[in-house]
Design a protein around this nucleic acid. Sequence first.
DNA 1: GTGGTCTAGACCACT
DNA 2: GTGGTCTAGACCACG
Lengths: 123, 123, 123, 123
Amino acid sequence: MDFQFDNERPIWLQLADALRKQIVAGQFLPGDRLSSVRDLALQAKVNPNTMQKALSELESAGLIFTERTNGKFVTNDSRAIEAARHALAEAQAKRYLDEMQSLGLSPADAAAYLTTATTDRRE
Amino acid sequence: MDFQFDNERPIWLQLADALRKQIVAGQFLPGDRLSSVRDLALQAKVNPNTMQKALSELESAGLIFTERTNGKFVTNDSRAIEAARHALAEAQAKRYLDEMQSLGLSPADAAAYLTTATTDRRE
Amino acid sequence: MDFQFDNERPIWLQLADALRKQIVAGQFLPGDRLSSVRDLALQAKVNPNTMQKALSELESAGLIFTERTNGKFVTNDSRAIEAARHALAEAQAKRYLDEMQSLGLSPADAAAYLTTATTDRRE
Amino acid sequence: MDFQFDNERPIWLQLADALRKQIVAGQFLPGDRLSSVRDLALQAKVNPNTMQKALSELESAGLIFTERTNGKFVTNDSRAIEAARHALAEAQAKRYLDEMQSLGLSPADAAAYLTTATTDRRE
DNA sequence: GTGGTCTAGACCACT
DNA sequence: GTGGTCTAGACCACG
């Protein structure tokens, strides 16, 4: 895990976003135990408190849960993960439409560019 | 024109990107005269040299041209503008697909989210 | 490297031209590391920013590339160098023909003078 | 006649060069009367003394002669004009060869580029 | 007034 | 040490 930080946003938020992405992308399976906060902080080269705050964010979003003496785990509630994925995907789609609109392009144009880009990718 | 700068990227590049967007979006028409370099710099609260560098970038990309003692103008070559718009749109589409892929979603999923988001927007 | 400046043209352009010539003439081999921007500026007795602008020109022409903390290097793409040489040679040939034409001489005359001058040189 | 001066060289030399070119190119015919020094100076926007010096140069080169009360005339000696043309052409040819050599190209290459440029011109 | 060039000097990230 | 960016301020040609 190698993080590249953007000075503009709180680091804990950037960490939370990155971890959220990893979870919804299936890089951690439901029920998986996460590394210790201390280890995650080391890997990300941040203060453990910062990592703790990021994980709290995910926990309050229902993506992970804590077993007091055991560690933190990815939720078993795959519907919650799915919901998070859905939210992120929706946000990306909106962002894409906004960007295309700012280029003077309609949603139909946006869809057309998408199919083109998809085809290019397959070749 | 109000600019919000990202510390990670050179200001002149961000300025060039923003102006490029405005041009391809049709906020300036072909042949329009831009504000003076000094004025643009004032508006963006940057040094004139920085703005100059941004405009040089657009000029070498063929989107604007200079009449030495008169000012800078949007190119009359609407094909060049169209080409720039196409390139930007393609880049956005690729970026969107990449983001969705990193969420574990296929191009087909990406397209589906797009239609949903489009519908939401219309309502 | 000793530069003689012409007041009529921008120094950075003259620097770029001189360096371009050295590269295409093979005075730097593909992959060679250039002196640091600061050193080159000292040698040419110009401000580092001016030298930087000259080098940016060569970089955007694909003749040199940058390793961010390491220095600038002549491109390994010998075809790019060859292309640049070709372009420069063509320009010189055109210039020669123009000059001869302004003396009232035909391209055939130009060619004839060329063979004479070549012979003189060999003797 | 519109002159563009190079700050590096004496203006009278630049004037002499320009006039010499016009004569050898046949823009003045042998025996033609030149405008008065005063008029030529006005046209070129230089001091009459400067123009005088330029004309003296041409006179000592045998390209023009003075009739005391009448003005200055292009020489009737068409061989002198021809010789001047020859000298200028030779200088251009040498210059061309030098430039090509500084690009790492042989006289043979120079000749080849010349034929190419000639062909391009005809098309 | 316009754009363009140049210098001087500072600061940054990277290694 | 490297390249890169940015600012401040001056000067120039053109009209």
